[in-house]
């Protein structure tokens, strides 16, 4: 170091780079396997290559989170989903940058994707307290009974997000499940995982109970058979064309499996993603018979 100008030069700031980790049980662990991979969409970035044991841990966390999340009133769940929208909005620029870094799409397109995600989140925030009115019913029967059908969450649902759009696609699958009171274990986009993993930070600052949302990154081909065979996963919602092998592996535990074969453009089409069809397969209908008392 030479002495000239030493006092007036501002020292360079250290390069603080984010390590993208998993989001499991409200914490941000690295994969237990110690592996990482370079996603196809983001050169020079390493993210966790989650293993089946990470999935196992995430399912245990989701089972715990389910108890809390499903026990809340629909009204409270709606408030928390709205809080998610607020947090997404606050982090809009960072999320857009993460999408750009991963997808090499234009800045404008990335901003549009984040804005669509925020809007979608607001829409689903309005659903939870109306779910029973919309999907439940009061049934007329031949006898002195009031008969109600109400909906309850299916349980722990595995989600495999589309490759792209990496944030909007993930949210389009996860939000309806949360609105229905389910806990989610989601595998984020394999090639463009950054924005999906950053969604964990949004959840962590939004009163979403620990374990209600769990996010893994890793190879779809490696983890999807594990999602399908795990007996403690109650349902699967998978972006992409129907896959017979997954259906077969899921059959042993009688899992409900739904595929979402949407095109890239479909995900930002409100008419496609703002529909109760997304939550209806992942709630269970309970019918109560109550004697009429005069």
């Amino acid at each position: 170091m030479n002495g000239a100008g030493m006092n007036d030069a501002t020292p360079p700031r250290p390069d603080v780079r984010k390590t993208y980790k998993l989001y499991v049980g409200g914490k941000f662990p690295r994969t237990e396997s110690g592996r990482s991979y370079e996603p196809a969409g983001c050169a020079g970035v390493q993210v966790c290559r989650g293993s089946r044991k990470d999935l196992r841990d995430a399912v245990v966390a989701a089972r715990k989170g389910l108890e809390d999340w499903s026990g809340r009133t629909g009204y409270n769940r709606g408030q928390i989903l709205y809080r998610l929208a607020e947090m997404l909005e606050t982090r809009k620029d960072a999320l857009a940058a993460e999408i750009v870094a991963a997808s090499r799409i234009g800045d404008e397109a990335a901003v549009r994707e984040v804005e669509a995600s925020v809007d979608l989140c607001c829409w689903w925030a309005g659903v939870p307290d109306k779910l029973n009115a919309l999907l439940g019913s009061q049934n007329d029967v031949n006898g002195p009974f009031f008969v109600f059908s109400t909906v309850e969450p299916t349980g722990v649902i595995g989600v495999i997000a589309p490759e792209s759009p990496s944030l909007l696609g993930l949210l389009a699958l996860v939000l309806p499940l949360l609105a229905g009171g389910n806990a989610v274990v989601a595998l984020v986009s394999e090639g463009r995982p950054l924005a999906g993993l950053a969604f964990g930070e949004v959840c962590a600052s939004s009163d979403v109970p620990a374990g209600a949302v769990n996010l893994l990154s890793g190879l779809r081909s490696e983890l999807s058979p594990q999602f399908a065979s795990h007996r403690d996963v109650d349902g699967l919602l998978i972006a992409g064309a129907p896959d017979a092998a997954i259906g077969q592996a899921a059959a042993d535990s009688v899992k409900r499996v739904r595929f979402a074969p949407l095109s890239q453009a479909d995900w930002s089409d409100g008419a496609r993603v703002r529909r109760l069809d997304w939550v209806e397969p992942f709630v269970e209908c309970k019918t109560l018979w109550h004697p009429v008392a005069w």
Binding site: R56, Q226, S229, R231
Partner: peptide, 9 residues
């Protein structure tokens, strides 16, 4: 079995 189990079972 090679399959993760469900505590409820």
């Amino acid at each position: 079995t090679g399959v993760y189990q469900r505590p409820e079972d």
